[in-house]
């Protein structure tokens, strides 16, 4: 089950914490990857840890012209096809709404939401021709619940969910599914830096009593990318240890 042998995938933000776990999960299931990120060295170092003939593509998702080139570059690097698109890259520019600058709003929307739309639009073309595709966007629990200080981030993540539902309806008849995975608190360099009191405060909000791992997100993405998930579309899979049940 969930075998991705022979399938190709573009993953954005691939060298980050969750991104690398997603890439690792897809590669482990047999997919060949185009790994995109903003840091060439980090990408190359990470790519070397994966099995398979994977490619790396440096792309600044804040640059619309570069974003428009990314899918064509990936299709070329992957031998002419793209079966799976994972919109994982995201940034935060946290601030209370009353103090939030236009730039902070714009940057987050541009990278988290607009770039994802551009990539979906570009990937839909070859996927429609192939009558097969899997588009998976990494949103967040805060896109559904909100979070103080993250009006921009929460809007971008909620936007991904709405966009995915619209695309899911447009593309369902062509064998393309469009879904989201919404992580809760996932262990990262940032959460490792928290002290015991802070960690305990977070854990107390999570019925599972602990933070999630990147691999929990990777597994959810691998499932949605699989042929077996072909009847699942327009959905958001929440992976959060029960901290929000929506």
């Amino acid at each position: 089950m969930f075998d991705l042998t022979g399938m190709t995938a573009l993953v954005t933000g691939a060298s980050g914490g969750i991104g690398s776990a997603i890439a690792g999960a897809l590669a482990a299931q047999g997919a060949t990857l185009a790994l995109s990120g903003s840091n060439a060295d980090k990408l190359a170092t990470f790519a070397a840890t994966l099995s398979g003939d994977n490619k790396t593509i440096v792309c600044d998702l804040a640059d619309p012209a570069a974003v428009d080139q990314l899918v064509p570059q990936a299709v070329e690097a992957l031998g002419g096809r793209i079966d799976i698109l994972v919109n994982n890259a995201g940034v935060t520019r946290d601030n209370l709404a009353m103090r939030m600058k236009d730039e902070e709003w714009d940057q987050v929307i541009r990278i988290n939401l607009e770039a994802a739309f551009r990539l979906c639009r570009a990937a839909a073309k070859p996927m429609m021709k192939a009558r097969f595709g899997r588009i998976i966007s990494i949103t967040s629990v805060v896109g559904v619940t909100g979070n103080p200080g993250q009006a921009n981030y929460a809007a971008s993540k909620a936007g991904l969910i709405g966009m995915s539902k619209a695309l899911a309806q447009e593309l369902a008849s062509r064998g393309i599914t469009v879904n989201c995975v919404a992580p809760g608190f996932i262990r990262s360099a940032m959460t490792d830096a928290l002290n015991d009191t802070q960690t305990a405060a977070i854990n107390s909000r999570i019925p599972a009593g602990q933070l999630g791992e990147g691999s929990d997100i990777g597994a959810a993405v691998a499932y949605l990318a699989s042929r077996e998930a072909g009847y699942v579309t327009g959905q958001t899979l929440h992976v959060n240890g029960g901290m929000a049940m929506i």
Binding site: K125, M128, K129, E170, L171, S173, R174
Partner: peptide, 9 residues
């Protein structure tokens, strides 16, 4: 409408 997009492509 999606067929039209495909035909144009």
């Amino acid at each position: 409408s999606l067929d039209i997009v495909e035909l144009v492509m």
